[in-house]
């Protein structure tokens, strides 16, 4: 499979990339790791005339902590997320999720910025970012604006990203020390998108849930922040009544497509099972 022809640009700075993106307009796409875009180009479902490769832009790399917030550069690879000691200590669900994405070769090249910016409902990081209440820095000709992950996704492949803007960084408020977390994903095989997956973060005090945040992957046109499911847990000791209510609330907002991963009812129930398992594992990890 041969992609359509394009002109290749490799700017050395973010400013240069944004100038190019604005000059070239709709004919251009930015290229991060390319592991979503290149397969689409090989199928000729995407035929950009220009590619703006972000690989040489140092400002888009690196993982830092500042004032209780983690900043992850958009060009950070999934392998770098897995290898980061800082993330393992402050926000280990990032590693747990990244390890469930594709395979080692793809994680070496695929980036977190590409994963969240592309708007593919099958990608795992967007729901996690919603559960973490992360925000995205979108940099354009007029400067940088922050958009919360919970407001970013509009429909499959449609996001709040405007033409000429580049998603430059991800900002994650560091969850409280001792929080419980789990990302549960059911997939048919390595490299598959989720049949359904759930991200859960929670805090506990004296055996009682004091906060909970839940989001779902690949059971809708966008990642789904399951606000009511999280709320159902708060104040409970994770008794069956509360957990069952959270599962029901998550299933109520799931609207997966019927595809090779199963019919609608099945995938909806799998979403519920993933939520139940993730709650159990997160609660067992909370201190």
């Amino acid at each position: 499979m041969i992609p359509g022809a394009f002109d290749y640009h490799r700017p050395a700075s973010l400013g240069e990339a944004i100038t190019l993106a604005n000059e070239l307009g709709d004919d251009a796409r930015v290229l991060a790791g390319g592991h979503s875009l290149i397969p689409m180009m090989k199928l000729r479902m995407a035929v950009p005339e220009h590619l703006i490769d972000l690989a040489d832009i140092d400002d888009l790399k690196g993982i830092d902590e500042r004032d209780g917030t983690l900043q992850i550069g958009a060009m950070t690879s999934q392998a770098e997320i897995i290898g980061s000691g800082l993330l393992a200590e402050r926000c280990p669900i990032l590693r747990e999720t990244a390890e469930q994405i594709a395979d080692p070769q793809i994680r070496n090249v695929g980036t977190i910025g590409g994963n969240v910016a592309n708007g593919d409902p099958g990608n795992d990081m967007p729901a996690l970012m919603q559960a973490l209440n992360a925000s995205y820095a979108l940099t354009g000709a007029g400067g940088t604006r922050e958009v919360p992950a919970r407001n970013f996704y509009e429909a499959a492949y449609f996001t709040a990203l405007e033409p000429g803007e580049v998603l430059s960084a991800i900002h994650i408020p560091i969850p409280p020390a001792g929080h419980g977390y789990a990302y549960e994903k059911q997939k048919r095989k390595v490299g598959d998108y989720a049949t359904a997956a759930a991200a859960v973060l929670l805090t506990m005090e004296g055996g009682v849930c004091t906060s909970a945040s839940i989001a779902l992957t690949n059971v809708g046109d966008t990642p789904l922040f399951a606000e009511a499911a999280g709320a159902a847990l708060v104040g409970s000791a994770f008794d069956e009544g509360a957990v069952g209510a959270a599962v029901s609330a998550a299933e109520a907002i799931a609207s997966p497509a019927e595809d090779g991963r199963g019919p609608v009812d099945f995938r909806t129930r799998v979403a519920g099972v993933m939520v139940r398992r993730a709650i159990g594992r997160a609660a067992s990890r909370a201190r």
């Binding site: 290749y8 490799r10 070769q105 070496n108």
Partner: peptide, 18 residues
């Protein structure tokens, strides 16, 4: 699979330009 700058990558999903 090839080794690129000390990492395993899939050379069918990478442009020569990269």
């Amino acid at each position: 699979t090839v080794d690129l700058n000390g990492k395993s990558v899939k050379s069918c999903t990478m442009f020569v330009a990269q």
